[in-house]
Write a protein that binds this DNA or RNA. Structure first.
Length: 816
DNA sequence: AGCACGCCGACT
DNA sequence: GTCGGCGTGCTC
């Protein structure tokens, strides 16, 4: 008899420690649709509930356990390749993530865990004779369906489980598994109606009455329909005005599958080939000379040295080879300006992936890549998984940015993924930055990567002059304000000559914390272990970690005194102070609070560009991707604010942030001025920033890293435990020590193991009522401690751990 | 996460 | 004795 085909499948919904591949049989009728890479539906667990799975290989099952059958095979477009499977295996091991979740990143977007179990009324209408049964069925009847979780919460009384089980057994209720289908998401799109006459009439008659509605109509006249959310953002209005126009029958809203809509400016952007200078040409030549086998480059080029032209030229070469390339940029840089350059150059040969896309737009881009309709993909972190068939180059712009590391499971590092992919296919990896990550630069010293340096700035504009202001002297001089005398002077001068200024202050809100003068009590978030920040716009205190807000207290909640004081300054306060000095000026504030709405980022920048003598105030989001003429002054209000947070990366973050933002000064012909305010003028990160001297910074920093054994001289594994009960977490986490001792005996790789610290409270010890502890492991390589750590953690997780969740972060970039 | 099995305590 | 609560371990 023909043996039935048995396949290995990774199943959704397992945690990293119980994650395994399972064997299933394939029914005859599905035989040619079930093979490695295919998405399938399988029964799983004792209840045989449906789950999504991905076939990872063929099983050599010996028949010792009875196998279940694959229920369904999905259609073709959900497939992943064998190369994806081996990449996913690497990721699952390296980042301690479930294999399914890794593969899911590579398959078509918006197909997460598909099945939700609901309970509905069953065929048997005769209920057991008890009140609880009736209540449960009534609840389901009223809501049509209910999840088990919902029911357990609604009937958190004794006897629920029994009654529930009985109902299920009697078929009074039944399980209904629903597909949680995100596919083909519809988007509300606004169109002008056919009543053109009425529209013109309305615009004329309501000039001064319904300004918002008129702006909406104007925005719509130039285009053929626009998604409502975008329309609101572009015209700076609200949903209420949209509704009003609908009621007047002037516009209509249709539900449409979302399309990727190009902005007119993107289409119009010139497609002229840039003329490269000799440095740029050399860079291109060097990179291309290594083609044909895996090679890695680091392009270190000051801001304005024209790195984007190099990327464009490299991509062009790849396209001519008939191959494909990915360009990764930090999310924040995916502004229309940058997108425009790629569209201008490659037209419809380029796919763009960014966070503002809806699921269906993302699917469409993914499909174009998969079908070979495009040859270049530009996108943020997750674009590294773009499913090209003959990918041959990956370029990572601003490679020092920490956003290339995912902070959600799977906590992957796009740089490592890119390297893995290029190594496998013999492609080229290009990293680029004005201020490379110290770990990246180190690779050029060990020979793992080739350094390419660009020194010339576009049009030979000199780098800005950087002045350091010692804030301790300001204090001595009696100036307690946010702005030093010197910076204030420069701002005034800049405004007088009609030029723009940019001020960086890496703290949002008004004040950083508020406390009582009499008893010293600091007002903290009720759910998190952090101080609340005062936000003047809402006149409330906000928690930046859980978004809770509370009214501003007029007296101290501890001692009742009414001398509450606001300490520290954020962007809101700075904005206010600037208005005091320049009542006439246009001060534009850009931070998380002002840019939550889609597109508002771009609107704010446009305003800044348009208005003479305007001042831009913002958090680190203003440091990148901005390209303005006539910015004569850049101010760094508090240079040390990133110095001692962010763990060992603090120095590097500070140096690159200051350098980046200072580079915004004086583009165009004139030399700009940057004023850096600090309490630590002698710190080497600040000193090096003064002369914009990366090499000097690197020299100091690598010495420090080597001395205290930090990356690149080790790898760090952070294990984070969270839960409601402080004591239980601590006890649980302590359990890892003996297990680790045991594990190291079984997997003798001790030479790699450097040290284990903790458990200790995280630097934010509580978020949303959950306490947080962490254990940090330093090792020569994460790879060689993987087996022993996995052993210890699996055993640890196998014990009762009510309410404690554990996650692992390999080489974290944030240590909160 | 969810589901069944099995141990233990309360109630008949 | 029996029912039901709750902890423990497994899922092809």
């Amino acid at each position: 008899m023909d043996k039935e085909k048995a396949v290995l499948i990774c199943v959704s919904g397992l945690d990293a420690f119980s994650d395994r591949e399972f064997s299933y049989l394939c029914p005859k009728e599905l035989e040619n649709r079930v093979f490695p890479g295919a998405k399938v539906v399988v029964p799983f667990g004792r209840g045989g509930r449906k789950r999504e799975g991905i076939v990872t290989g063929f099983s050599k099952s010996d028949g010792s356990i009875p196998l279940k059958y694959v229920i369904k095979a999905e259609n073709e477009e959900t497939f992943v390749t064998e190369a994806d499977i081996s990449l996913a295996r690497f990721m699952a091991k390296r980042y301690y993530a479930p294999l399914y979740e890794c593969l899911n990143l590579m398959s078509i977007p918006g197909t997460g865990v598909k099945f939700r179990g609901y309970y509905v009324l069953g065929e048997n209408k005769e209920l057991p004779d008890n009140e609880l049964s009736r209540k449960i069925t009534d609840y389901i009847y009223e809501n049509e369906k209910a999840t088990l979780k919902e029911l357990t919460e609604a009937f958190s009384q004794r006897g629920f489980k029994t009654a529930f089980d009985l109902l299920l057994k009697n078929k009074n209720i039944a399980l209904f598994e629903e597909m949680n289908d995100h596919g083909g998401k519809m988007l509300q799109t606004a169109y002008l109606t056919e009543n053109r006459g009425l529209i013109d009439e309305f615009i004329n008659n309501y000039q001064n009455k319904a300004r918002a509605q008129i702006r909406l109509l104007e925005a719509l006249t130039d285009c053929d329909g626009m998604p409502v959310t975008e329309l609101i953002a572009v015209s700076g209005t609200t949903r209420a005005s949209v509704k009003a126009l609908c009621d007047r029958d002037l516009i209509e809203i249709r539900n449409e599958p979302a399309k990727m809509e190009l902005f007119s400016e993107e289409k119009m952007f010139s497609s002229e080939k840039p003329i490269l200078n000799s440095e740029q040409e050399n860079a291109v030549k060097t990179v291309l000379s290594g083609r044909g086998k895996f090679s890695e480059y680091l392009i270190k080029g000051v801001t304005g040295s024209g790195k984007t032209e190099i990327y464009l030229t490299l991509c062009e070469n790849i396209i001519n080879e008939g191959k494909q390339a990915i360009i990764l940029v930090p999310e924040i840089s995916l502004t229309p300006q940058i997108r425009a350059r790629f569209f201008g150059r490659f037209g419809d040969k380029v796919a763009v992936l960014h966070s503002a896309l809806s699921v269906s737009e993302r699917r469409e881009e993914w499909r174009k890549i998969k079908n070979g309709e495009v040859s270049v993909a530009v996108g943020a972190r997750s674009a590294v998984f773009a499913p090209f068939s003959d990918l041959s180059m990956i370029i990572i712009d601003e490679e020092h940015e920490t956003s290339y590391k995912s902070e959600m499971s799977p906590r992957y590092d796009a740089k490592e993924i890119a390297r893995f992919k290029m190594q496998k296919t013999g492609g080229t990896l290009v990293l680029a930055s004005a201020t490379p990550a110290v770990s990246t630069f180190y690779r050029t010293e060990t020979g793992e990567s080739t350094l390419i340096t660009l020194k010339k700035r576009y049009n030979d504009v000199p780098l800005p002059e950087v002045e350091i202001v010692d804030l301790r002297n300001e204090l001595k001089g009696g100036n307690h304000g946010v702005l030093s005398e010197r910076l204030r002077e420069c701002l005034i001068k800049s405004r007088e000559s009609g030029e723009k200024s940019i001020l960086l202050l890496n703290r949002r809100g008004y004040s950083t914390f508020i406390s009582c003068r009499d008893c010293g009590h600091v007002i903290k978030c009720p759910k998190c272990e952090v101080a609340l920040t005062y936000h003047s716009a809402e006149n409330r205190l906000k928690c930046h970690y859980c978004q809770t807000t509370v009214p501003t207290p007029s007296e101290c909640p501890e001692c009742g005194s009414n001398s509450i004081r606001y300490f520290g300054s954020g962007t809101q306060k700075l904005e206010e102070e600037l208005y005091k000095i320049f009542p006439e000026a246009s001060v534009i504030r850009m931070d998380n609070d002002t840019t939550v709405a889609k597109m508002s980022h771009e609107r704010l920048l446009k305003r800044f560009e348009k208005e003479k003598g305007s001042i831009l105030v913002g958090t680190q989001m203003i440091a990148k991707g901005l390209d303005f003429k006539d910015v004569s002054v850049v101010g760094v209000v508090s240079a040390d604010s990133t110095l001692f947070v962010g763990g060992y990366l603090g120095n590097e973050k500070t140096f690159s942030l200051i350098t980046q933002v200072c580079g915004r000064a004086g583009r165009g012909e004139k030399r700009g001025l940057a004023v850096v305010q600090t309490y630590q003028p002698d710190h080497y990160a600040i000193e090096a920033a003064k002369t914009q001297d990366y090499d000097k910074f690197y020299e100091n920093e690598i010495k420090f890293r080597r001395n205290v054994k930090y990356p690149p001289f080790c790898e760090i594994i952070n294990i984070i435990f969270t839960g409601e009960n402080e004591k239980e977490i601590l006890e649980f986490a302590e359990g890892i020590k003996p297990l680790m001792t045991e594990a190291v005996k079984i997997y003798p790789q001790r030479e790699s193991y450097i040290a284990m610290y903790g458990p200790m409270p995280c630097s934010i010890a509580k978020i949303k009522d959950k306490y947080r502890f962490h254990i940090t492991i330093k090792c020569k390589s994460a790879h060689s401690v993987r087996d022993s750590l996995f052993y210890a953690l699996s055993k640890l997780m196998a014990r009762g751990r009510k309410g404690i969740s554990v996650h692992i972060d390999v080489n974290p970039v944030s240590f909160l």
